[in-house]
Nucleic acid binder design. Structure first.
Lengths: 180, 180
DNA sequence: CAGAATATGTCAACATGGCTGACCTAAATG
DNA sequence: CATTTAGGTCAGCCATGTTGACATATTCTG
Protein backbone atom coordinates (compact mmCIF):
# COMPACT_ATOMS: atom_id res chain seq x y z
CA UNK A 1 0.00 0.00 0.00
CA UNK A 2 2.85 2.29 0.82
CA UNK A 3 4.54 1.01 -2.29
CA UNK A 4 1.61 2.00 -4.45
CA UNK A 5 1.84 5.52 -3.14
CA UNK A 6 5.55 5.68 -3.69
CA UNK A 7 5.25 4.42 -7.21
CA UNK A 8 2.46 6.83 -8.04
CA UNK A 9 4.48 9.67 -6.67
CA UNK A 10 7.52 8.62 -8.63
CA UNK A 11 5.54 8.53 -11.87
CA UNK A 12 4.04 11.94 -11.33
CA UNK A 13 7.33 13.54 -10.46
CA UNK A 14 9.16 11.92 -13.31
CA UNK A 15 6.50 13.29 -15.61
CA UNK A 16 6.98 16.88 -14.47
CA UNK A 17 10.65 16.38 -15.22
CA UNK A 18 9.92 16.37 -18.92
CA UNK A 19 8.96 19.93 -19.89
CA UNK A 20 11.18 22.96 -19.47
CA UNK A 21 13.75 23.47 -16.69
CA UNK A 22 10.74 22.67 -14.51
CA UNK A 23 10.87 25.58 -12.09
CA UNK A 24 8.13 23.88 -10.14
CA UNK A 25 9.08 23.49 -6.52
CA UNK A 26 10.42 20.01 -5.79
CA UNK A 27 7.75 19.48 -3.16
CA UNK A 28 8.41 15.83 -2.44
CA UNK A 29 12.07 16.13 -1.52
CA UNK A 30 11.49 19.35 0.40
CA UNK A 31 8.92 17.62 2.56
CA UNK A 32 10.71 14.30 2.80
CA UNK A 33 13.83 16.05 4.06
CA UNK A 34 11.73 17.57 6.80
CA UNK A 35 10.11 14.30 7.82
CA UNK A 36 13.27 12.23 7.54
CA UNK A 37 15.30 14.64 9.61
CA UNK A 38 12.52 15.05 12.16
CA UNK A 39 12.53 11.32 12.84
CA UNK A 40 16.32 11.00 12.52
CA UNK A 41 16.97 13.36 15.42
CA UNK A 42 14.09 12.04 17.50
CA UNK A 43 15.96 8.85 18.43
CA UNK A 44 18.81 10.50 20.34
CA UNK A 45 16.50 13.13 21.78
CA UNK A 46 14.74 10.52 23.85
CA UNK A 47 17.96 9.03 25.20
CA UNK A 48 19.46 12.46 25.88
CA UNK A 49 16.57 13.62 28.01
CA UNK A 50 17.46 10.99 30.61
CA UNK A 51 20.81 12.72 31.03
CA UNK A 52 19.33 16.20 31.18
CA UNK A 53 21.12 16.90 27.92
CA UNK A 54 19.72 18.29 24.70
CA UNK A 55 20.52 18.30 21.03
CA UNK A 56 23.20 20.90 21.50
CA UNK A 57 25.11 18.61 23.86
CA UNK A 58 24.74 15.76 21.41
CA UNK A 59 26.25 17.71 18.54
CA UNK A 60 29.20 18.90 20.60
CA UNK A 61 29.90 15.48 22.06
CA UNK A 62 29.55 13.85 18.67
CA UNK A 63 32.14 16.00 16.94
CA UNK A 64 34.54 16.03 19.85
CA UNK A 65 34.43 12.26 20.02
CA UNK A 66 34.94 11.98 16.30
CA UNK A 67 37.78 14.50 16.20
CA UNK A 68 39.86 14.02 19.33
CA UNK A 69 42.06 17.00 20.03
CA UNK A 70 40.05 19.45 17.98
CA UNK A 71 40.22 23.14 18.78
CA UNK A 72 37.28 25.11 20.11
CA UNK A 73 37.46 27.27 17.01
CA UNK A 74 37.01 24.22 14.78
CA UNK A 75 33.90 23.26 16.65
CA UNK A 76 32.46 26.73 16.28
CA UNK A 77 33.06 26.58 12.54
CA UNK A 78 31.37 23.22 12.20
CA UNK A 79 28.34 23.99 14.29
CA UNK A 80 28.01 27.54 12.98
CA UNK A 81 27.03 28.92 16.36
CA UNK A 82 28.59 31.56 18.60
CA UNK A 83 31.17 30.79 21.23
CA UNK A 84 28.73 31.91 23.91
CA UNK A 85 26.20 29.29 22.80
CA UNK A 86 28.89 26.66 22.61
CA UNK A 87 30.35 27.70 25.94
CA UNK A 88 27.14 26.95 27.74
CA UNK A 89 26.80 23.34 26.68
CA UNK A 90 30.53 22.63 26.54
CA UNK A 91 30.89 23.73 30.15
CA UNK A 92 28.20 21.28 31.22
CA UNK A 93 29.84 18.44 29.30
CA UNK A 94 33.18 19.21 30.93
CA UNK A 95 31.74 19.67 34.42
CA UNK A 96 29.98 16.33 34.21
CA UNK A 97 33.02 14.50 32.91
CA UNK A 98 32.08 13.78 29.31
CA UNK A 99 34.73 16.01 27.77
CA UNK A 100 38.17 17.19 28.88
CA UNK A 101 40.40 19.98 27.67
CA UNK A 102 44.16 19.81 27.27
CA UNK A 103 46.54 22.63 26.65
CA UNK A 104 47.97 22.60 23.14
CA UNK A 105 51.59 21.47 23.05
CA UNK A 106 52.77 23.88 20.40
CA UNK A 107 50.32 26.65 21.12
CA UNK A 108 49.48 26.88 24.78
CA UNK A 109 46.50 29.15 24.13
CA UNK A 110 44.60 26.24 22.65
CA UNK A 111 42.26 24.12 24.75
CA UNK A 112 42.14 20.90 22.75
CA UNK A 113 38.99 18.87 23.27
CA UNK A 114 38.78 15.17 23.99
CA UNK A 115 35.90 12.90 24.92
CA UNK A 116 36.46 10.91 28.13
CA UNK A 117 35.67 7.20 28.26
CA UNK A 118 32.28 8.18 29.66
CA UNK A 119 31.82 10.68 26.85
CA UNK A 120 32.82 8.21 24.20
CA UNK A 121 30.39 5.66 25.57
CA UNK A 122 27.52 8.10 25.36
CA UNK A 123 28.53 9.28 21.90
CA UNK A 124 28.65 5.70 20.67
CA UNK A 125 25.30 4.90 22.22
CA UNK A 126 23.68 7.82 20.45
CA UNK A 127 25.40 7.06 17.16
CA UNK A 128 24.15 3.50 17.54
CA UNK A 129 20.56 4.64 17.67
CA UNK A 130 20.96 6.68 14.52
CA UNK A 131 22.87 3.89 12.85
CA UNK A 132 20.02 1.49 13.52
CA UNK A 133 17.64 3.74 11.64
CA UNK A 134 20.02 4.32 8.75
CA UNK A 135 20.94 0.64 8.48
CA UNK A 136 17.29 -0.35 8.40
CA UNK A 137 16.61 2.23 5.71
CA UNK A 138 19.55 1.15 3.57
CA UNK A 139 18.68 -2.50 3.83
CA UNK A 140 15.13 -1.77 2.74
CA UNK A 141 16.42 -0.23 -0.43
CA UNK A 142 19.15 -2.62 -1.40
CA UNK A 143 22.68 -2.37 -2.75
CA UNK A 144 23.95 1.00 -3.84
CA UNK A 145 21.71 2.79 -1.40
CA UNK A 146 24.53 3.91 0.86
CA UNK A 147 26.45 5.33 -2.03
CA UNK A 148 23.46 7.06 -3.56
CA UNK A 149 22.47 8.61 -0.24
CA UNK A 150 25.98 9.83 0.35
CA UNK A 151 26.22 11.43 -3.07
CA UNK A 152 22.90 13.20 -2.62
CA UNK A 153 23.71 14.52 0.83
CA UNK A 154 27.14 15.73 -0.23
CA UNK A 155 25.65 17.56 -3.19
CA UNK A 156 23.19 19.28 -0.87
CA UNK A 157 25.98 20.91 1.13
CA UNK A 158 27.09 24.43 0.26
CA UNK A 159 29.71 24.32 -2.45
CA UNK A 160 32.04 26.34 -0.27
CA UNK A 161 32.77 24.33 2.81
CA UNK A 162 31.97 21.09 1.06
CA UNK A 163 35.61 20.12 0.73
CA UNK A 164 36.08 21.07 4.34
CA UNK A 165 33.28 18.70 5.36
CA UNK A 166 34.65 15.90 3.24
CA UNK A 167 38.10 16.37 4.70
CA UNK A 168 36.67 16.36 8.19
CA UNK A 169 34.77 13.13 7.67
CA UNK A 170 37.62 11.38 5.91
CA UNK A 171 40.14 12.49 8.52
CA UNK A 172 37.96 11.45 11.46
CA UNK A 173 37.32 8.17 9.72
CA UNK A 174 41.05 7.64 9.42
CA UNK A 175 41.89 8.48 13.02
CA UNK A 176 39.96 5.96 15.09
CA UNK A 177 41.88 6.49 18.29
CA UNK A 178 45.56 7.02 18.75
CA UNK A 179 46.23 10.09 20.91
CA UNK A 180 47.34 9.99 24.53
CA UNK B 1 40.01 16.88 -5.04
CA UNK B 2 36.67 16.57 -3.38
CA UNK B 3 36.08 13.61 -5.62
CA UNK B 4 39.14 11.86 -4.38
CA UNK B 5 37.89 12.19 -0.86
CA UNK B 6 34.49 10.88 -1.80
CA UNK B 7 35.93 7.90 -3.55
CA UNK B 8 38.29 7.08 -0.73
CA UNK B 9 35.45 7.36 1.72
CA UNK B 10 33.28 5.11 -0.38
CA UNK B 11 35.96 2.47 -0.55
CA UNK B 12 36.53 2.46 3.17
CA UNK B 13 32.85 2.28 3.99
CA UNK B 14 32.19 -0.44 1.46
CA UNK B 15 34.99 -2.42 3.05
CA UNK B 16 33.47 -2.24 6.52
CA UNK B 17 30.28 -3.58 4.98
CA UNK B 18 31.88 -6.96 4.52
CA UNK B 19 32.29 -8.52 7.96
CA UNK B 20 29.44 -9.19 10.34
CA UNK B 21 26.22 -7.15 10.60
CA UNK B 22 28.72 -4.27 10.81
CA UNK B 23 27.60 -2.68 14.04
CA UNK B 24 30.03 0.12 13.36
CA UNK B 25 28.31 3.48 13.45
CA UNK B 26 27.56 4.78 9.96
CA UNK B 27 29.52 7.93 10.63
CA UNK B 28 29.46 9.37 7.16
CA UNK B 29 25.70 9.44 6.70
CA UNK B 30 25.11 10.59 10.26
CA UNK B 31 27.34 13.59 9.70
CA UNK B 32 26.27 14.26 6.14
CA UNK B 33 22.64 14.39 7.25
CA UNK B 34 23.63 17.04 9.77
CA UNK B 35 25.56 19.16 7.28
CA UNK B 36 23.06 18.77 4.45
CA UNK B 37 20.12 19.71 6.62
CA UNK B 38 22.02 22.58 8.20
CA UNK B 39 22.58 24.15 4.80
CA UNK B 40 19.16 23.16 3.47
CA UNK B 41 17.33 25.20 6.09
CA UNK B 42 19.79 28.07 5.98
CA UNK B 43 18.45 29.39 2.66
CA UNK B 44 14.92 30.19 3.89
CA UNK B 45 16.22 31.36 7.25
CA UNK B 46 17.88 34.35 5.64
CA UNK B 47 14.80 35.35 3.67
CA UNK B 48 12.53 34.83 6.69
CA UNK B 49 14.49 37.11 8.95
CA UNK B 50 13.53 40.05 6.76
CA UNK B 51 9.88 39.34 7.61
CA UNK B 52 10.57 38.92 11.31
CA UNK B 53 9.56 35.30 10.88
CA UNK B 54 11.43 32.18 11.90
CA UNK B 55 11.58 28.54 10.96
CA UNK B 56 8.43 27.78 12.87
CA UNK B 57 6.47 30.22 10.71
CA UNK B 58 8.00 28.70 7.61
CA UNK B 59 6.91 25.20 8.49
CA UNK B 60 3.37 26.26 9.28
CA UNK B 61 3.01 28.36 6.16
CA UNK B 62 4.52 25.62 4.02
CA UNK B 63 2.09 22.93 5.06
CA UNK B 64 -0.95 25.20 5.07
CA UNK B 65 -0.12 26.32 1.56
CA UNK B 66 0.39 22.76 0.41
CA UNK B 67 -2.79 21.48 2.06
CA UNK B 68 -5.44 24.15 1.73
CA UNK B 69 -8.30 23.62 4.13
CA UNK B 70 -6.35 21.47 6.53
CA UNK B 71 -7.42 21.27 10.14
CA UNK B 72 -5.36 22.60 13.04
CA UNK B 73 -5.16 19.07 14.40
CA UNK B 74 -3.59 17.83 11.17
CA UNK B 75 -0.92 20.46 11.43
CA UNK B 76 -0.16 19.50 15.01
CA UNK B 77 0.23 15.90 13.95
CA UNK B 78 2.60 16.77 11.13
CA UNK B 79 4.78 19.16 13.05
CA UNK B 80 4.75 17.09 16.24
CA UNK B 81 4.57 20.15 18.46
CA UNK B 82 2.01 21.26 21.04
CA UNK B 83 -0.97 23.39 20.17
CA UNK B 84 0.42 26.15 22.38
CA UNK B 85 3.60 26.30 20.34
CA UNK B 86 1.62 26.24 17.13
CA UNK B 87 -0.83 28.82 18.39
CA UNK B 88 1.85 31.40 18.86
CA UNK B 89 3.20 31.37 15.33
CA UNK B 90 -0.14 30.66 13.68
CA UNK B 91 -1.63 33.71 15.35
CA UNK B 92 1.12 35.89 13.92
CA UNK B 93 0.66 34.47 10.44
CA UNK B 94 -3.07 35.15 10.65
CA UNK B 95 -2.69 38.63 12.13
CA UNK B 96 -0.31 39.61 9.37
CA UNK B 97 -2.50 38.25 6.62
CA UNK B 98 -0.55 35.21 5.45
CA UNK B 99 -3.11 32.65 6.58
CA UNK B 100 -6.88 32.71 7.07
CA UNK B 101 -9.23 30.42 8.92
CA UNK B 102 -12.66 29.30 7.76
CA UNK B 103 -15.30 27.52 9.75
CA UNK B 104 -15.74 23.93 8.62
CA UNK B 105 -18.94 23.42 6.63
CA UNK B 106 -19.81 20.05 8.05
CA UNK B 107 -18.22 20.51 11.45
CA UNK B 108 -18.39 24.07 12.66
CA UNK B 109 -15.85 23.44 15.41
CA UNK B 110 -13.12 23.19 12.82
CA UNK B 111 -11.06 26.21 11.80
CA UNK B 112 -9.81 25.18 8.37
CA UNK B 113 -6.57 26.82 7.33
CA UNK B 114 -5.82 28.49 4.01
CA UNK B 115 -2.88 30.52 2.77
CA UNK B 116 -3.84 33.93 1.39
CA UNK B 117 -2.38 35.17 -1.89
CA UNK B 118 0.26 36.91 0.16
CA UNK B 119 0.92 33.72 2.09
CA UNK B 120 1.13 31.63 -1.03
CA UNK B 121 3.59 34.06 -2.58
CA UNK B 122 5.88 33.80 0.42
CA UNK B 123 5.56 30.03 0.60
CA UNK B 124 6.48 29.73 -3.06
CA UNK B 125 9.41 32.07 -2.67
CA UNK B 126 10.82 29.98 0.15
CA UNK B 127 10.16 26.71 -1.66
CA UNK B 128 11.96 28.22 -4.63
CA UNK B 129 15.10 28.77 -2.62
CA UNK B 130 15.12 25.20 -1.42
CA UNK B 131 14.31 23.92 -4.87
CA UNK B 132 17.33 25.73 -6.28
CA UNK B 133 19.60 23.86 -3.92
CA UNK B 134 17.95 20.51 -4.54
CA UNK B 135 17.89 20.97 -8.31
CA UNK B 136 21.55 21.88 -8.34
CA UNK B 137 22.36 18.83 -6.23
CA UNK B 138 20.35 16.47 -8.41
CA UNK B 139 21.84 17.80 -11.61
CA UNK B 140 25.33 17.31 -10.22
CA UNK B 141 24.61 13.65 -9.70
CA UNK B 142 22.76 12.77 -12.85
CA UNK B 143 19.69 10.73 -13.78
CA UNK B 144 18.08 8.60 -11.13
CA UNK B 145 19.24 10.92 -8.38
CA UNK B 146 15.78 12.22 -7.60
CA UNK B 147 14.39 8.75 -7.28
CA UNK B 148 17.27 7.46 -5.20
CA UNK B 149 17.07 10.42 -2.84
CA UNK B 150 13.35 9.96 -2.45
CA UNK B 151 13.67 6.30 -1.66
CA UNK B 152 16.33 6.94 0.94
CA UNK B 153 14.43 9.71 2.66
CA UNK B 154 11.21 7.72 2.73
CA UNK B 155 13.00 4.76 4.26
CA UNK B 156 14.39 7.03 6.97
CA UNK B 157 10.92 7.95 8.19
CA UNK B 158 9.38 6.05 11.09
CA UNK B 159 7.61 2.95 9.80
CA UNK B 160 4.46 4.05 11.53
CA UNK B 161 3.37 7.34 10.04
CA UNK B 162 5.23 6.64 6.83
CA UNK B 163 2.07 5.83 4.94
CA UNK B 164 0.52 8.94 6.40
CA UNK B 165 3.37 11.04 5.07
CA UNK B 166 3.18 9.46 1.64
CA UNK B 167 -0.55 10.03 1.50
CA UNK B 168 -0.08 13.62 2.54
CA UNK B 169 2.49 14.31 -0.14
CA UNK B 170 0.59 12.51 -2.86
CA UNK B 171 -2.66 14.21 -1.95
CA UNK B 172 -1.13 17.68 -1.80
CA UNK B 173 0.57 16.97 -5.08
CA UNK B 174 -2.80 16.10 -6.59
CA UNK B 175 -4.64 19.15 -5.30
CA UNK B 176 -2.78 22.08 -6.79
CA UNK B 177 -5.55 24.58 -6.14
CA UNK B 178 -9.25 24.14 -6.55
CA UNK B 179 -11.14 25.03 -3.37
CA UNK B 180 -13.19 28.18 -2.86
C1' DC C 1 -32.11 15.49 25.68
C1' DA C 2 -28.19 15.05 28.90
C1' DG C 3 -23.62 14.02 29.15
C1' DA C 4 -19.36 12.86 26.94
C1' DA C 5 -16.17 13.58 23.52
C1' DT C 6 -13.98 16.62 20.14
C1' DA C 7 -11.78 20.88 18.01
C1' DT C 8 -9.84 24.78 19.23
C1' DG C 9 -8.07 28.61 21.95
C1' DT C 10 -5.77 30.74 25.92
C1' DC C 11 -3.16 31.97 30.24
C1' DA C 12 0.91 31.23 32.90
C1' DA C 13 5.29 29.49 33.74
C1' DC C 14 9.39 27.41 32.43
C1' DA C 15 13.56 25.22 29.60
C1' DT C 16 16.61 25.13 25.77
C1' DG C 17 19.54 27.02 22.80
C1' DG C 18 20.23 30.49 19.59
C1' DC C 19 21.83 35.73 19.48
C1' DT C 20 24.42 40.53 20.45
C1' DG C 21 27.61 43.36 22.92
C1' DA C 22 31.12 44.22 26.08
C1' DC C 23 35.09 42.97 28.25
C1' DC C 24 39.01 39.90 30.15
C1' DT C 25 43.29 36.83 30.14
C1' DA C 26 47.10 34.49 28.37
C1' DA C 27 50.00 33.42 24.78
C1' DA C 28 51.91 33.96 20.20
C1' DT C 29 53.73 36.90 16.75
C1' DG C 30 55.59 40.77 14.13
C1' DC D 1 56.59 46.21 22.89
C1' DA D 2 52.23 46.31 20.30
C1' DT D 3 49.04 43.54 18.10
C1' DT D 4 46.70 39.49 17.10
C1' DT D 5 44.87 35.17 18.32
C1' DA D 6 42.49 31.47 21.23
C1' DG D 7 39.55 31.24 24.52
C1' DG D 8 36.41 32.50 28.37
C1' DT D 9 32.65 35.12 30.70
C1' DC D 10 28.81 38.20 32.15
C1' DA D 11 24.37 40.11 31.08
C1' DG D 12 20.38 40.25 28.61
C1' DC D 13 17.28 39.25 24.78
C1' DC D 14 14.59 36.30 21.52
C1' DA D 15 12.48 32.18 19.34
C1' DT D 16 10.40 28.14 20.06
C1' DG D 17 9.72 24.15 22.44
C1' DT D 18 7.39 22.15 26.94
C1' DT D 19 3.39 21.26 31.02
C1' DG D 20 -0.73 22.06 33.17
C1' DA D 21 -5.05 24.05 33.78
C1' DC D 22 -9.14 25.82 31.87
C1' DA D 23 -12.79 27.80 28.69
C1' DT D 24 -15.99 27.54 24.68
C1' DA D 25 -18.44 25.81 21.06
C1' DT D 26 -20.01 21.95 18.69
C1' DT D 27 -20.95 17.24 17.71
C1' DC D 28 -21.91 12.61 18.98
C1' DT D 29 -24.05 9.02 21.72
C1' DG D 30 -26.78 6.38 24.98
Amino acid sequence: MADLNVTALARRTAATNDPAPADQPIWDLIELLFFAYRDFVSDPDGALSRFKFGRAHHRVLHFVNRNPGMMVADLLDILKITKQSLGRVLKQLIDQGYVVQKEGENDRRQRLLFATAKGEALALKLAGLQTERIARALSEIGPGAHDAARRFLIAMIDAEGRDEVMTLIARADGLRKGQS
